[in-house]
């Protein structure tokens, strides 16, 4: 009996552990597969950027480069036009982010903390603007900016990008302001703070992670846009996405290794910004998701 009992205990333990191990292995496999899915294009981008032109089109393609060159990065460093595109991207994206955060913060606060007739309708109207395909608005915006003399300017790009980012930023920040207890505002009012001061010294600091998340979202939206940047800005004010296409994608062939080198380099500032601010981004995106 004893023997049977003592033998049965480890068996039960093994049975209990086995599903745990299996699920852990399955989780790791899933992580590796998803990781590969996400990282493989980046790996391929780097490999192509380091491959000499006449090896870049080898068939079948080689996963591990047999020959490495830095000539594409050297050529990139010598291309002053690309740095102009980069400067344009920074100008447009930073101003778009700042403007989006300022406007959406006030809008969101007004939606969250004030009660007035038409509030809900306005909120849904803001969201409804997201339902239109943005390409549909291109022709209208083009005509509008042309009539106002803004076509070709940074302003045209900044206004259009801000228009597209506002709805999501407003709703994101409204959720965050909803989590700020109204009793805090009432306490501030009792202490003699004006509404203006209450907003700036109490509500906005509490919503800082959300403001950063909204700013990052607007920044990335402006940084990545292609069609609007190509159509609304003149050549001297075009941003990186149309600039890269213009420089490397031609009628007859595409300079893939150069394009990959440029894509890698220009993505570094965004990667750095994300690494630095990602904790705010995650916190900001989820802050308004659950009401306590």
């Amino acid at each position: 009996m004893t023997v049977t009992l003592s033998a049965s205990v480890p068996t039960a333990r093994t049975r209990r552990r086995s599903p745990v191990n299996r699920s852990r292995v399955a989780a790791w496999i899933a992580v590796v597969v998803i990781g590969l899915f996400g990282l493989a294009p980046i790996y391929w981008l780097v490999v192509t950027a380091l491959t000499p032109d006449d090896r870049a089109f080898s068939f079948p393609p080689s996963l591990i480069p047999t020959e490495i060159t830095f000539e594409h990065f050297t050529r990139l460093a010598e291309n002053r036009q690309l740095f102009q595109y980069l400067a344009n991207s920074v100008i447009v994206s930073v101003i778009t982010a700042i403007l989006s955060v300022i406007v959406s913060a006030y809008m969101a606060y007004a939606f969250s903390k004030f009660r007035y007739r038409g509030r809900k309708s306005l909120m849904h109207l803001v969201l409804a603007s997201q339902l239109f395909p943005q390409a549909l608005l291109l022709v209208t915006l083009y005509a509008l900016f042309s009539a106002t003399g803004l076509l070709g300017s940074y302003t045209a790009l900044i206004l259009s990008f801000t228009t597209f980012t506002l709805p999501l930023c407003v709703w994101m920040l409204k959720g965050i302001f909803d989590t700020v207890p109204s009793t805090l505002m009432e306490a501030a009012a009792i202490d003699g703070a004006s509404r203006w001061r209450t907003l700036h010294t109490i509500a906005l600091p509490l919503a800082a992670p959300g403001l950063i998340a909204a700013g990052l979202f607007a920044f990335v939206r402006a940084w990545n846009d292609f069609v609007f940047a190509l159509t609304l800005a003149d050549p001297a004010r075009q941003t990186l996405p149309p600039g890269l296409v213009h420089t490397y994608l031609g009628e007859f062939q595409t300079a893939w290794p150069d394009l990959m080198a440029a894509s890698f380099v220009v993505s570094l500032p965004v990667i750095a910004a994300f690494m630095f601010l990602q904790r705010y981004l995650v916190g900001g995106l989820t802050a308004g998701a659950v009401k306590g």
Partner: peptide
């Protein structure tokens, strides 16, 4: 502030 970013008369397409 945004209007200050507008192109001058010689710029644009």
């Amino acid at each position: 502030a945004l209007a200050a970013c507008a192109p001058d008369a010689s710029g644009g397409a």
